[in-house]
Every structure is written in C-alpha cells, then in structure tokens.
Amino acid sequence: MARLQTTPAPGETLRAHCPGRRPAGAVDCTSCRVRHLAVCSALPEAEVEALESVVAPLELIAGSTLVREGDPRRQVYTVTAGALRLVRLLADGRRQIAGFLLPGDFIGLSGATTHRHDIEAITDSTLCRFRDEDMQALRADFPDLERKLLARACTELDAARENLLGLARLNPMERLAAFLLDLAERRARWAGDAVDLVLPMGRADIGDHLGLTIETVSRSFTRLRQQNLIAVPDAHTVTLLDRAGLARLAHGG
C-alpha cells in the first residue's frame, strides 16, 4: 500500500532536524528587546520554540572580529546589543567602512558563499547566532520569514544607493548631517527617540564610512555646531538641536 504523503506543518521540518530542546545558555526569544526589529519577528508566537531550539547567544568584546573577509559563510546573526562595523581594506592599504550594524540588524543576508567584509565589534556586543542550514529550514517552513528577509534586502539595497548618491553629490558637512539623522532614526527604533545621540563609533570610523579624512570630519562637526544645528557635549555624544535644519542640509539645501 502506498504511503500517504502529507505536507508538514510549519516548524515541523525544523523540529525534526533539530529537536526542541534549548542548548545550554540559550536565549529567551520572547523577552528579546529588539525582536520587533529583527527578521525573526516574522515567526508567529506559537513557533518561537522552533527558533529557540536553533539559536545560540554570542558575546563579542570591543575590538574583536566576528568574521574575516573571505571566510566561508556558515552562520548568520542578529545583533541584539552593541555596534559593529563592516570593514574592507583597499589595495593601497586604506580602510573602507561599508556600514555599521546596530541592534535588530541581520548579518549574513547574501547569496555569496563567503563573507565580503571583516566584521568587527566597535563596542561590547551580543548577537544571536544561527547555522545557515537552520535559517534555511526556518525560511522553508515560514514564508513570512522569507518575505521579511527579501524586504530587508531591498531596504539595504536602497540604503546603499542613497549612501553612494551622498558620497557623489554632497559636501562633507552635508554628508555628516545625513549620517547623524540616519543614525538617530535607526537608534530610535530600539532605544526610543531622544535629543542626545550616542555615537558608538569614533571620528575615524565616520570618516572611513563617509569617504572623508578625520580632520574633515572634525571640521564638519565644528561647522554644524557653529550653525547651532548640533551641540557636542563630549566625543561620543551629539545633541540634535535643529533636526529640520539638518534635514535641509542632508538634502543639499
């Protein structure tokens, strides 16, 4: 007699591959403060156990490296605390920072088999780590997760295009204004809106991201301060005094 073939319920394939027991030190996904930002929010509450069965926490100290450019891409990550940078060294030895990763950001959204950048912790950071095959199983079981990953990829592509446009068209002060507003918007999603913006990265990191020297970055901060658009209480804090003025500047106004 032929065996009746049935379609497994959502999460069944994953749980069969990785039975639902938490590894030692596993995280509690239901209490994660950035879950609403992360791609895993696409999973229904009833299936959180499927997620918890395959996730492992990872802690990085400031200055440590998560992966190197060219390393095989075997795992994916969600940042839950801290800040990281995507770094590539150019042929002439200059450093280029392609972007900064903040809580809620997903690492590993790529069709490449190897990592394209060094990924370094700017501050002490925590991440949720998934094996790539476990994430693929989740994507197969939960179409909403696949759709959310696609939406995240489109958002990142749009952001990359905006950054390239800014590098090509905006002057240094305009680039810095756009960067500060973007960072403030991203932080507000998980830390709440605030006048004071804490910068996890230093002036050299900002310069290597915006294509500016550290001296130009410092002068641009000074000019924004002189125009009463920002205040700078200390090296890692910027008070946004006039967001509308910064926005006009960021759009080349």
Rank of each mutant, 00 (worst) to 15 (best):
S125T: 01
R186Y: 03
A42D: 08
S125Q: 04
P172S: 02
D28I: 05
G253F: 15
L240P: 02
G166D: 10
A178P: 07
D144S: 14
L89R: 14
G63T: 06
L84D: 00
R116T: 11
A231H: 09
V195F: 11
E174M: 09
D141W: 02
D124R: 06
V34P: 00
A188D: 02
L181T: 07
E162G: 12
P57G: 02
S220Q: 06
L241G: 06
R129F: 07
W190P: 01
T13S: 13
A191Y: 11
V87L: 09
R35W: 11
S218L: 08
L199T: 00
A56N: 12
S53K: 07
R248Q: 11
L138I: 05
A244R: 15
L181Q: 04
A184W: 00
A137R: 07
G82N: 01
E45P: 12
I107M: 08
D134G: 07
L51M: 07
R152I: 05
V48N: 13
T80N: 03
R95C: 06
G108E: 04
A153S: 08
H117Y: 12
P23C: 06
H117G: 06
P19S: 08
A168G: 08
A26M: 11
A56H: 15
V39N: 05
A83Q: 05
T65H: 11
E12D: 14
V34M: 02
L183E: 04
D118W: 12
R248W: 10
E174T: 05
L14P: 05
P172F: 06
L43H: 11
V87F: 10
D144Y: 12
L183C: 06
E185Y: 07
A26K: 10
L210E: 00
D92I: 02
H251C: 13
T65W: 13
R15D: 13
L14H: 04
A151G: 10
A2G: 14
A235N: 09
I61R: 14
F106P: 03
A24T: 13
A184M: 00
G63N: 06
A112K: 13
